[in-house]
Design a protein around this nucleic acid. Structure first.
Length: 528
DNA sequence: TGTGCCGGGAT
DNA sequence: ATCCCGGCACA
């Protein structure tokens, strides 16, 4: 748990007093719901004025410049605390916390509470706040989740103002609604269109001074502001969907807050992550399972088993009933294929159900993997073995399933320092693939011939369909399915004779060894 | 016996 | 993913 809350008093959620619209001098109180910073938009107000969205008591939202409002909790220091507290909140100064622009809902709850007049009885007394007062009565249930949150905070933050005083139920509800309104209304601003931020980035400080503030919180009425760890940082507990890295970019435009110069250094990590983004994120699992109809003259490929079953049931078996009345026969008419979405995206497109071209033997083409089952035979018999055996030439997946391509992988990058060539399927030209140490997990495969458009492996958990495919194309499968190095000596790579780091540098210079040698792996540096 | 490195465990 | 190491095979 590193969800330290490092942000001290935020202005957001603060009760402030605003000048009366009628000018009669009676100030109105409201809650600060958002802070916008304007850059010279209004010349008269000077550079970068803060504009506060204040939720008035009547439920309306108004904008006030910081000169216009007075902080409620300490009216004697009307404007001073406002600004200073904001600055405090913008960057917490520890380099790992959440900056604060557009506070999270949690912040609204916690921080706002801290600044509400009620809560501020003990404003200066951190101890008092931390111990808080026990919840009592009906309020307890309503705020249980909040209480949990705050308990967490109390555990991890010993030096942070975290109040235990909470709002009334009404106030909390109101804030949920109005905060959502505010966020929505601000969403047109580039500042706020930003999606959630990766935790790690915040922890690295790369987001500091962005003006964006997110605290890891599962509480969010909209879901939009909660954490989302895209891809590798995924946080399973967050409800919000992962967002593409692109969507982060607007948020990082350094215009809103005008980051101080020293920020540029701190930004490097983050910007390399986000701006120098031409490198697509590695997909952890680029295998996609599709289901291909094996019925004669039908190459339909669907992404779900249910879909393909329904397709077969209704289209080929002529049954209109629902899946409950299925006897499972459909299972025999489709095949599960795994597609490597990295290397075969193009092939996939040609696999779309839209163009179920099916045909007799054709010269190698992108379509040839769509041969129907039981080509030239009675595909309608429903014989389960029908498509499983002995078609000497091709079967639907036999050509499209150079399955071993998927099986070729290295556990360690250093195990694949030299290119691996996969022998061709007899055509004389090689289908080769190079493995580089740095990208063993997502190596690219360039098929030169034949033009295989997707690399799929026929997976047939039942009915041993796979075997039939192997039989139909023994050469190909035999070659492809054999691990690259499993020739001759059973599994162990024959020992390299050349220099190795150990020999060259000796045990005393172990730190000069290549990593692989240090790890007792196949030497990377002196390959044989 | 020394060495290379596979396989697998720990983090 | 990275790091480490037991243990096997080979020279």
């Amino acid at each position: 748990m590193h969800t330290r809350r490092l942000v001290k008093r935020s202005i957001l959620g603060s009760r402030v007093f605003t000048p009366s619209p009628t000018g009669d001098g009676a100030p109105l109180s409201g809650l600060v719901q958002a802070v916008k910073q304007q850059e010279n938009r209004d010349v008269s107000t000077g550079p970068r004025r803060n504009v506060y969205m204040v939720l008035m008591q009547d439920g309306s939202l108004k904008e006030f410049s910081e000169d216009e409002i007075a902080v409620g909790f300490n009216q004697t220091t009307a404007k001073g605390p406002l600004r200073s507290s904001l600055k405090q909140s913008v960057w917490n100064g520890r380099g790992n916390g959440a900056p604060l622009q557009s506070q999270t809902m949690e912040a609204q709850k916690g921080e706002a509470n801290s600044l509400s007049p009620e809560a501020l009885k003990g404003e200066r007394g951190a101890d008092g706040r931390r111990t808080g007062r026990p919840l009592e009565g009906p309020e307890r249930d309503h705020t249980r989740s909040v209480s949990l949150l705050e308990q967490k905070r109390n555990v991890v933050s010993s030096s942070i103002d975290v109040p235990n005083v909470r709002k009334s139920e009404e106030e909390v509800d109101m804030e949920k609604v109005t905060a959502a309104m505010v966020l929505t209304s601000l969403s047109s601003s580039p500042l706020v269109r930003s999606p959630p931020v990766k935790v790690s980035e915040c922890l690295n400080g790369s987001w500091k001074d962005r003006g964006g503030g997110f605290t890891p919180s599962s509480y969010s009425s909209s879901g939009y502001w909660s954490w989302s760890g895209p891809s590798d940082q995924s946080n399973p507990s967050t409800p919000s969907p992962p967002l593409s890295a692109d969507s982060f970019k607007p948020f990082r435009m350094p215009s809103i807050n005008g980051p101080p110069p020293d920020d540029a250094i701190d930004e490097q990590d983050g910007s390399s992550l986000l701006f120098d983004e031409p490198i697509p994120r590695k997909r952890k699992n680029s295998m996609k399972v599709m289901f291909k109809c094996l019925w004669k003259n039908c190459g339909k490929v669907l992404s779900s088993a249910a879909g393909i079953q329904r397709h077969i049931r209704t289209v080929h078996l002529g049954r209109n009933c629902d899946s409950d009345c299925s006897d499972g026969e459909e299972d025999f008419y489709y095949s599960e294929i795994k597609l490597n979405t990295d290397s075969v995206a193009d092939g996939l497109s040609s696999l779309s159900p839209v163009s179920p071209s099916v045909l007799s033997p054709v010269p190698p083409s992108n379509d040839r993997h769509r041969r129907p089952p039981a080509e030239g035979s009675n595909g309608s018999s429903g014989n389960k073995e029908n498509h499983s055996h002995a078609h000497s030439n091709t079967t639907p997946l036999s050509r499209s399933a150079p399955s071993a391509l998927y099986l070729i992988h290295t556990d360690h990058a250093y195990q694949a320092t030299s290119p691996v060539t996969i022998p061709s399927t007899g055509s004389g030209s090689a289908a080769s693939t190079s493995f580089t140490p740095s990208s063993s997990s997502n190596f690219s495969i360039s098929w030169q011939s034949p033009p295989v458009t997707f690399t799929g492996t026929a997976v047939s958990p039942t009915h041993s369909r796979t075997q039939s495919f192997v039989e139909q194309r023994p050469q190909t499968i035999a070659v492809l399915s054999s691990p690259p190095r499993a020739t001759g000596s059973l599994s162990r790579k024959s020992r390299g004779e050349g220099k190795k780091c150990r020999k060259v540098y000796g045990m005393e210079n172990r730190d000069m060894w290549c990593t692989a040698c240090r790890w007792k792996k196949a030497c990377q540096r002196f390959t044989d």
